[in-house]
Design a protein around this nucleic acid. Sequence first.
DNA 1: CTGTTAGCGCCTTCAC
DNA 2: GTGAAGGCGCTAACAG
Lengths: 345, 345
Amino acid sequence: MVVTRSDVAREAGVSPAVVSYVLNNGPRPASAQARARVLDAVQKLGYRPNAIASALRAGSTRTVGFLTPNRGNPFFGALAEAVEQNLNDQGYLMLAANTHGYQPDELKLLRTFVDRRVDGLIISGGTTLVGPTLQEVEQPVLVFDDPGSWAGCSSVQPEDHLDAAAAVDHLQNHGHDLIACVVGPPRIGSEARRLAGWRAQQRLRGVYAGDELVAFADQSEAGGDQAARLLLSDHGRPATLHGRRPTALFVASDVQAIGVLWACHELGVRVPEDVAVVSMGGTRAAAYSIPTLTTVRQDVVYLATTGCTQLLRLVADPLTPQTHLRVRGNLVVGQTCGCTVAGSG
Amino acid sequence: MVVTRSDVAREAGVSPAVVSYVLNNGPRPASAQARARVLDAVQKLGYRPNAIASALRAGSTRTVGFLTPNRGNPFFGALAEAVEQNLNDQGYLMLAANTHGYQPDELKLLRTFVDRRVDGLIISGGTTLVGPTLQEVEQPVLVFDDPGSWAGCSSVQPEDHLDAAAAVDHLQNHGHDLIACVVGPPRIGSEARRLAGWRAQQRLRGVYAGDELVAFADQSEAGGDQAARLLLSDHGRPATLHGRRPTALFVASDVQAIGVLWACHELGVRVPEDVAVVSMGGTRAAAYSIPTLTTVRQDVVYLATTGCTQLLRLVADPLTPQTHLRVRGNLVVGQTCGCTVAGSG
DNA sequence: CTGTTAGCGCCTTCAC
DNA sequence: GTGAAGGCGCTAACAG
């Protein structure tokens, strides 16, 4: 049977309250003698406080819920890991769940977390759980996404639009004008913003940015593979492109870019000589692909740290003002953009 | 303020117990009329049961703790994800934490989980938490590792030794005899077993398997990169190898193999023509490397399913007999072993 | 069929 | 400096 606080009290010859005083260093003092006897008894019996009972009484579980569409994606995986580490360091535990981007599941899991009285909630990008959906939640919420027009939660948001534009700009500086775009489903906010960033930057240079240059793809290697085959195929190229094949690809995520590189390899298309590639993410995989990816790196540790700090501040004091942070990525030059081949970058 | 069960009871004009009966479909029946009024009140007030109170009373949190050394490693990441999915499907939530292979952290996190009264524990390979360490734990435990000589927990274990031998055997069948080995720290059980598998298979064919052929490396791309540079360097090659460079590498994990491929690329060593590579894992990354990895694939979904099933069986009935399952991987032929170049495989 | 009640283990105010 | 007691919200045994 499990040993309870009363058992310790009995063993130490004190009352249960004193056990609490000693173990929690307060809120009342205890004599040195009582303290010693309690600690001895704790040791002897191997007593461990029941965190569930404590949570019920104290109204805090020291747990944060983390909802993400897909931890298999290295970006979300790394973000989740960084968040977890941060929370652990602060004495919190993370309850995590994958939603697979499926809205009913998202809601169900959100409810589950709330029922379990998590102290706070973190919603990563790629979910539909932003703005109004979260209104009913009592706990503080942090979203790694655009919070929409609603200010009910704090947010730490990658600058998807600007970062995408920066990636495209880099390709343009290499002299490319026919730059195609591989991107995830546009119902996901971050993907829509990256697509818009690509389009805006193309138009800024007065370059064509029609739909024939866009391939929507699953956020996976396989998705990138298929998209690249589509965009680079010599068959059925739209008349609007005057028979030209894109000379560069902007790819909205590293994981898709890995698939793109593979497709190019299979098709005998050289990267970056025949087609240059720039992607977004900056995950570990990007640094060890062949050739290495030029990518706009998001610092997940920074995202996680600022996000967790703000969330825990809100947990400690719900009256803390909301914050909305936007974080720029930075271009990490690899081998896929062409900088290392011809010195035009 | 949060709405409690008593509020619902008051609103519905019944007693709190009846609310429980209705919401839990038992343990006692309720009249159709009472049921309707309760459900109305629940709806109207937006009542959600407090899972913490329920857990305290019922003695079950419907939560499982998962301890892993490093979720950044695609293999553990995929395993964790599969486990999480399994548990969610059964109405459980997963509490997860990374130990970074650091024993004090492992113990601390284990304690934290136990304090929180998880219903069960899952320990992935790569931790030191096997056997006796877990004796003090009351909850059922499942380890994805060798449980040691101690039968206090159930286990689902990849056949590291046999799988490693199979990988080496495949290289041997391609005519290689000087097969080096890249492997993680031997204090980790799975790594030690893979190393032993390599050695046993080499000796089986009467081939040299000395320590000069082994490079211990961090379980990361960078680790594989460094190990490959060491083993393939033309400088300082041990006299015992008669000046020969290994013609093949057995790499104990995909993530290291990605680094190995990159090092080969950098060194101008062609894979598989100059050096053949076979690794272990079978993660998604292996299928999209250039060239694609020949690897011994572990079916993480199968591991997770059988593991979770057994654990939840133990949770439901602690008297369920322990089980110890060993699971073979299967060789997935890619392009790094040489099968696709010369038809000798 | 329904209501009342005794805890689950802990924290903390209040009385000594 | 210490002990007794109430209650966090819920479940289930026990009485009606």
